[in-house]
Write a protein that binds this DNA or RNA. Structure first.
Length: 725
DNA sequence: TCCATTGACGTTTTT
DNA sequence: CGTCAATGGA
């Protein structure tokens, strides 16, 4: 068979990976080195050359977008249907397994997926019911604890150090929460993975079946896998499966949410005969950008090592702008973008990348003022909107009235005289008898435990749900959706809101009905035994949809560095390049490789740029209400000067502060600061440290000093007794 | 039950 | 400074 069309468009390293004959393959794919291309060609190669049945291949990604792209491009390349191929996200695949084997997994058939908002609300509820102080035991932290444990594959009984009072409290909450979920048939995101893993652990026959069927496993973004995902892959592979993973340890930026870069190294140890292929030729950026990025990332100690190169030109130098303050920074970026547009380039060629979401505000303001169209990534997704989740909660109750999360959400929405008092009474009953809220409410009714008015209201709600279920059981999904919105009279609830808000809500509800109308039960969901409604609800949870229906075309792109991963733009601004902001203070303080992860984030940002990269930082930034004197990011210092071109602010003579680069900032006209930023000072107790910033004035002046031994500390200048060195 | 004021807090995000 | 959630008076 002629396979030249599969190989022609690949370079040597890519070809080596795609055509690997046996064993496992680890592809270390640098930024812009054609990672997706390799994955897609590998799929095609397996099918067309090795004649592997598409049914025997599983390809896993992290995001729905990546999964869709892989399926799409594979279809284009192969010119055959990709439907039999199992391509999906870890969560999507775990979900499908659990649907097919709900009995073996110990789940009710109508189990529902809990998104993180649902999860947090449920936890807040539990913590309150326990009579615990929410300020001391925030639901957010409980959520973090539980998900982190689940990501490590741990159940409450597996967690040690129960003698530690804080840990044991969280374990207690974990246990209560899991009981709630089990009673109501609720599965959170982490639980999907953990259950899927346990399913195989406890059902060797089932595992064996899948091992025999799925001989080829492909994993995208391997550096982002967490412990349970890695364990899941290992288990499925067994000793017969062949695993092909693609990743880049230098682009691992999700350690804080459980990703384990170590898995990249572990892979070579845990799997025998791993062939490692490095993709280092970059097809995206200019030489200068790549050289600068290489130099930066070389400062990381723990890496597998890689050096990007390009056959293209070295291109323009990286521009560095020292802004007077954050307004000046925004003004500079927006002015330059305007020039870019004036020169005939497109707005969506440009991207502004920042470390924290809050930074977008000022740029939006200036872009708006200059009438430059822009789009902010992130933010709320369609299926996460309040009104959408409210309407879906009614449908969830039709399927599974024991869904406490859904019931809590809508039992009094719109107001139907079931106030906090009645609800907490039901909760108490449920807790005492180990029932779900729905069961407890029915119980209370039949035993006449409610006061007359409350009883009538609760009975009416129960009847509402049961009538809906009865009436709508044969309706189309779209009609069910519309019916649920109408019968519940949700509109009454939003009508009390401000006009504009109400209108958006109604608009979104109409869109929801449209989405339900247009929904086609996917074949794979049908195979897993789902009906339309179940499938629709699962989709709503697993792929929350586009951020906005907003027009996508020709807008400047604003996003965090994290969300920029995987994207590319001709013109990239990395703004707020200041120590404390980027790298973020929290990452500098916590030890344990956090700084290296920040550096990787910087590397990710730089390698998004195709033609021109612009870095900027502000000398003074207002944060949390007070002015901060900033030091340029250490990452700027790590980029060799030969790749940088400094752009001076307009008229430097008018400025009260001298630029921090190359010489450090000086107190200038202000004599209140006896030290320079970056100066080494000595503290009687903490030893020597570096001055990072000042805050406040007069006797309130505080100074931020980084002590190598103990970390960074804020000191009140008047008391600290610091000596210059 | 509702809006308005107050207060706490202040990385990163997908599923 | 700006946001969000919780509290409390009408």
């Amino acid at each position: 068979m002629d396979v030249s069309h599969l190989l022609d468009e690949l370079n040597e390293a890519q070809r080596e990976a795609v055509t690997a004959r046996d064993g496992h393959v680890l592809v270390l794919a640098g930024a812009g080195s054609g990672k997706t291309r390799v994955l897609v060609h590998r799929l095609a190669w397996l099918i067309q050359v090795d004649h592997v049945s598409p049914l025997g291949i599983l390809a896993v990604t992290f995001t729905n977008k990546a999964a869709g792209e892989m399926r799409e491009r594979t279809g284009q390349l192969l010119q055959v249907s990709t439907r039999p191929l199992w391509i999906g996200t870890f969560h999507g695949i775990a979900h499908r397994l659990l649907r097919m084997h709900w009995k073996e997994a110990g789940l009710p058939e109508q189990f529902q997926i809990l998104d993180s908002e649902d999860q947090q609300r449920l936890l807040r509820r539990i913590i309150r019911d326990e009579g615990m102080d929410e300020a001391h035991w925030p639901a957010r932290q409980a959520q973090w604890f539980i998900n982190a444990r689940k990501d490590e594959g741990e159940r409450p009984q597996h967690i040690e150090h129960l003698d530690h009072p804080v840990t044991s409290t969280w374990v207690h909450i974990y246990r209560l929460y899991q009981d709630y979920c089990n009673r109501g048939g609720l599965v959170d995101f982490a639980e999907l993975l953990l259950r899927a893993h346990e399913l195989w652990l406890e059902q060797p026959d089932l595992l064996d079946h899948y091992r025999k069927r799925l001989r080829h496993l492909l994993v995208d973004e391997f550096q982002d896998t967490n412990s349970i995902q890695y364990a899941w892959i290992r288990m499925l592979a067994g000793s017969t499966g062949r695993v092909f993973v693609v990743g880049d340890d230098d682009q691992s930026i999700y350690g804080w949410r459980g990703a384990k870069v170590e898995n990249v190294q572990l892979f070579g140890r845990d799997f025998p005969d791993v062939m490692t292929v490095r993709l280092e030729q970059n097809y995206r950026s200019t030489g200068n950008i790549l050289d600068a990025a290489n130099a930066l990332i070389a400062h990381n100690q723990s890496r597998m090592g890689k050096n990007l190169w390009t056959a293209g030109e070295s291109g323009k130098l990286i521009q560095l702008y020292t802004a007077f303050n954050e307004q000046d920074e925004a003004r500079f970026v927006v002015d330059q973008l305007q020039q870019w547009l004036d020169s005939g380039r497109r707005a969506d060629d440009g991207a502004i990348l920042y470390r924290t979401t809050a930074q977008s505000r000022l740029f939006e303001e200036y872009l708006l003022r200059e009438n430059i169209p822009y789009r902010v990534y992130g933010g709320q997704r369609f299926f996460e909107r309040t009104e959408v989740k409210d309407a879906l909660a009614y449908l969830r109750l039709l399927l599974n009235p024991n869904d406490d999360a859904a019931l809590e959400r809508v039992i009094n929405k719109p107001a139907r005289a079931i106030g906090e008092k009645t609800v907490s009474f039901i909760r108490l009953q449920a807790r005492e008898s180990g029932l779900t809220l729905w069961q407890a409410a029915n119980e209370c009714l039949s035993q006449g435990k409610f006061a007359t008015r409350a009883g009538t209201a609760v009975a009416a709600f129960i009847r509402l749900i049961e009538d809906m279920r009865e009436r709508m059981k044969d309706w189309t999904l779209g009609n069910q959706m519309q019916g649920a919105i109408d019968d519940s009279n949700l509109a009454a609830h939003y009508e009390k809101e401000p006009r504009e808000r109400m209108e958006t809500r109604f608009e979104n509800l109409r869109e929801l009905v449209n989405a339900a109308d247009a929904f086609i039960l996917p074949q794979e969901d049908a195979e897993a035994g789902l009906d339309e409604l179940q499938s629709f609800l699962s989709h709503a949870a697993l792929e929350a949809g586009e951020t906005q229906g907003e027009s996508w075309d020709d807008c400047v792109q604003l996003m965090t560095l994290h969300s920029a991963k995987g994207l590319e733009f001709p013109l990239v601004y990395m703004v707020g390049m200041e120590d404390g902001l980027f790298p973020h203070q929290r990452s500098v303080e916590d030890a344990a490789g956090r700084l290296e992860e920040e550096r990787r984030l910087c590397y990710v940002g730089m390698t998004r740029a195709r033609e021109q990269l612009v870095l900027s930082y502000a000398e003074i930034r207002r944060m949390h209400g007070s002015e901060n004197f900033c030091r340029p990011s250490r990452f700027i210092d790590e980029i060799p000067a030969e790749y940088l071109e400094e752009i001076r602010p307009r008229t430097s003579s008018r400025q009260p502060w001298v630029s921090a680069r190359p010489s450090p900032v000086r107190g200038g006209a202000n004599t209140e600061w006896p030290f320079r930023l970056g100066q080494v000072v000595a503290h009687p107790k903490f030893g020597e440290g570096t001055v990072m910033s000042f805050e406040g004035s007069g006797e309130h002046t505080r100074v931020h000093v980084n002590f190598p031994a103990i970390g960074a500390k804020w000191l009140v200048l008047a008391y600290a007794n610091l000596q210059a060195r």
